[in-house]
Design a protein around this nucleic acid. Structure first.
Length: 601
RNA sequence: CGGGGCGUAGCUCAGCCUGGCAGAGCACUCGGUUUGGGACCGAGAGGCCGCCGGUUCAAAUCCGGCCGCCCCGACCA
């Protein structure tokens, strides 16, 4: 304790040292704030810990996983546990700096809450039993929790200290390590058990106040992701069974993404909640009444469709379920569609389970032959089913009905519960479906936590009211990985300007004592004075190795100082994205490079 | 939780089936050559073959248990 105190005081009294980047007269390019002062300014590769590898780890699958390890940015410690090496941490810190600036700009106040929590508030919120929650006991045997987010703790502070409507609204946030016992960590830093998250919490008097706070976050998040240089979408998210409140997810398309987004001009939604008009299906001519057809052994949509010579979409598929209230119901979707469980839960406003085969047989008919005609079981008909005559099960073995018309032949309630398919349309525009990774989310919590944790205030009329809350997360590691995935080529990473560990990599081709080396030493200083974060490859290595490493690491610009070009009074500049080279004159080279840097994406 | 795979030098991997001196490429160290796309020559160092137990004269290799890691699915604030 005493030692720690002394150390803190020593650090506190230390005089800030002057360095080029902290001089207001020579600001670094871009809005990098003060974050570069956290980074070493001695960035000569000969003395830097940047262990690049020729081979990707054998167990790596995702391109970001392979490249971030190969480029010496991250190293694995255990399943879902990663260290950030110096260059990787610079990327992470740059993202953090962007997020911090935009959070502060909407009036957020940064704070810090502990990772290790007592179990009690988690019991009160009902989250102590979450499977993903790491739990442990302290030496006295008290239950402890490793926090996977901080709703309980921050709400506790509000409950303790906020008394009056005058104390609200508030935006509080922190960057903190989150611990989650993931069932399956995967793909490098894309899904890990421990990761840094920016989580913000808003506290308002009522739903209207929450809506304002939410809108502020939409604006801040839009700016954050725009600044990262990523391709991104704000999509409608799952609001859960509570419904009504609202949630958005920020998704970055990438091959290793775990989610799928449905995209059309003016439309973007998580596939889990997406809604669209189906492609029309050609139905057979209508019949005056349902007509039984023999379909022995044909228990799948494909077999029946083939036998009857109709498209799969001309069938109605039955999905029998038992809802939480004990009721037995049947969901009907077009034969070529699939029931989306999340949408179905949302439509039901409660949980359900698929009916067991015995249950379905007892109420309707044998598996494969279930239908909606002649039953008193409530039918939920998917909104994608257009009027017309369809083929359905006859609730008898080896028989189907054709010419079944919803409404005429069975009563139904319309629900939108199918999974959207690529090629469906929204407002006439075709939808495409892409894999993406969730890099941020915003969520209206309402009184989900303020109620169990007692966060209340007294309003103008002297009445006790619950605080209305929102929560807003961003994962810097996922932004970094998505940036790698989106822009990498066969040579390595190609960072967006805003995320790169260094703006420029300076490669010198010259031996100890050469004119090139002396010149490059000077240029390295000038580039830093010009405000460019520069990685200087001064190693005693061959040109091939240096070029390959530079392209692997992926800084936006690569400068080469070589005998030939130097003799011609020039420096070679390669733009990493596209790998096109040009030259700039030796005189004023640093300024010219800084100017070029500003034009990059 | 179900299915599949893997664990041998810093990295990528061979050797295991059929038990008999611990291997290759790259990386590393030293000397030399080379210097605009992972160059070459010579010398060298580096291993509890994941761990524990069993079988055997003898185990990286066969058998059992455990641990760790990856992939697919389930799950996922």
């Amino acid at each position: 304790m005493r030692g720690l105190l002394r150390w803190c005081r020593g650090a506190f009294y230390q005089k800030p040292q002057a360095c080029p980047g902290s001089d207001p007269a020579t600001p670094a390019p871009g809005a990098n704030g003060g974050v570069d002062r956290l980074h070493s300014r001695v960035t000569r590769l000969s003395g830097y810990f940047l262990p690049t590898q020729r081979d990707p780890p054998s167990d790596a699958e995702a391109s970001s996983h392979k490249l971030m390890v190969r480029a010496g940015l991250i190293r694995q410690v255990g399943s879902g546990l990663w260290s950030w090496l110096p260059a990787g941490w610079r990327v992470h810190q740059r993202i953090v700096a962007i997020v911090r600036e935009e959070m502060d700009a909407i009036g957020g106040h940064e704070m810090l809450m502990p990772v290790l929590n007592p179990a009690e508030p988690w019991r009160r919120s009902g989250r102590f039993d979450i499977d993903e929650l790491f739990t442990l006991k302290d030496r006295r045997g008290a239950d402890m929790v490793l926090a996977l987010s901080h709703e309980e703790i921050v709400t506790g502070h509000i409950a303790q200290s906020v008394r009056s409507y005058r104390d609200l609204p508030l935006i509080l946030y922190h960057f903190q390590t989150k611990e989650r016992d993931e069932p399956r960590p995967r793909a490098g830093v894309l899904r890990t058990r421990e990761f840094v998250m920016k989580d913000a919490y808003t506290f308002d008097r009522d739903a209207e106040g929450l809506a304002v706070a939410y809108d502020k976050h939409v604006a801040a998040y839009d700016r954050i992701f725009e600044r990262t240089g990523l391709e991104w979408y704000r999509v409608e998210g799952d609001v859960g069974m509570m419904g009504g409140l609202g949630a958005h997810e920020y998704m970055a398309p990438c091959a290793a993404g775990e989610n799928e987004v449905a995209l059309a001009p003016g439309y973007a939604a998580n596939l889990e909640v997406a809604s669209a008009d189906p492609r029309p299906v050609e139905l057979p001519p209508p019949l005056p009444a349902p007509e039984e057809v023999s379909t022995p052994g044909m228990t799948t949509v494909d077999k029946v469709a083939q036998e009857l010579g109709v498209p799969a979409g001309a069938l109605l598929k039955a999905y029998p379920i038992v809802v939480d209230d004990g009721s037995f119901q049947v969901v009907m979707v077009r034969g070529d569609h699939r029931v989306n469980e999340l949408k179905l839960r949302g439509a039901l406003r409660r949980d359900y389970r698929p009916a067991k085969p015995e249950e379905a047989s007892e109420r309707l008919g044998p598996p494969g032959y279930i239908g909606p005609v002649g039953t008193d079981v409530p039918i939920l008909l998917d909104a994608g089913v257009a009027p017309g005559g369809y083929v359905t099960g006859a609730n008898r073995p080896d028989a189907h009905l054709r010419g079944v018309e919803p409404g005429r032949d069975f009563p139904f309630e319309v629900v939108d519960v199918r999974t959207v398919l690529g090629g469906d349309t929204v407002n006439g525009s075709r939808i495409r479906i892409e894999p993406a990774i969730e890099v941020g989310n915003i969520f209206k919590l309402g009184t989900r936590y303020s109620e169990p944790l007692g966060a209340t205030y007294v309003d103008e009329e002297g009445n006790m009211q619950l605080v209305w809350m929102g929560s807003y997360g961003i994962g810097p590691a996922r932004i970094a990985a998505a940036g790698v995935e989106q822009f990498a080529d066969e040579h390595g990473i190609s960072w967006p300007r805003a995320l790169a560990p260094f703006d420029v990599e300076l490669v010198v081709l010259g031996r100890e004592g050469s004119e090139e080396l002396a010149f490059a030493d000077g240029l390295y200083e000038q580039l830093q004075v010009a405000g460019l974060r520069t990685l200087y490859d001064d190693r005693d290595a061959g040109p091939g190795e240096k070029f390959a490493d530079a392209e692997l690491i992926g800084c936006p610009l690569r400068l080469t100082v070589g005998k030939r070009t130097l003799a011609a009074g020039e420096i070679e500049v390669q733009v990493r994205r596209g790998r096109e080279s040009r030259t700039v004159p030796v005189d004023g080279a640093a300024e010219a490079v800084a100017g070029l840097w500003h034009e990059l994406p």
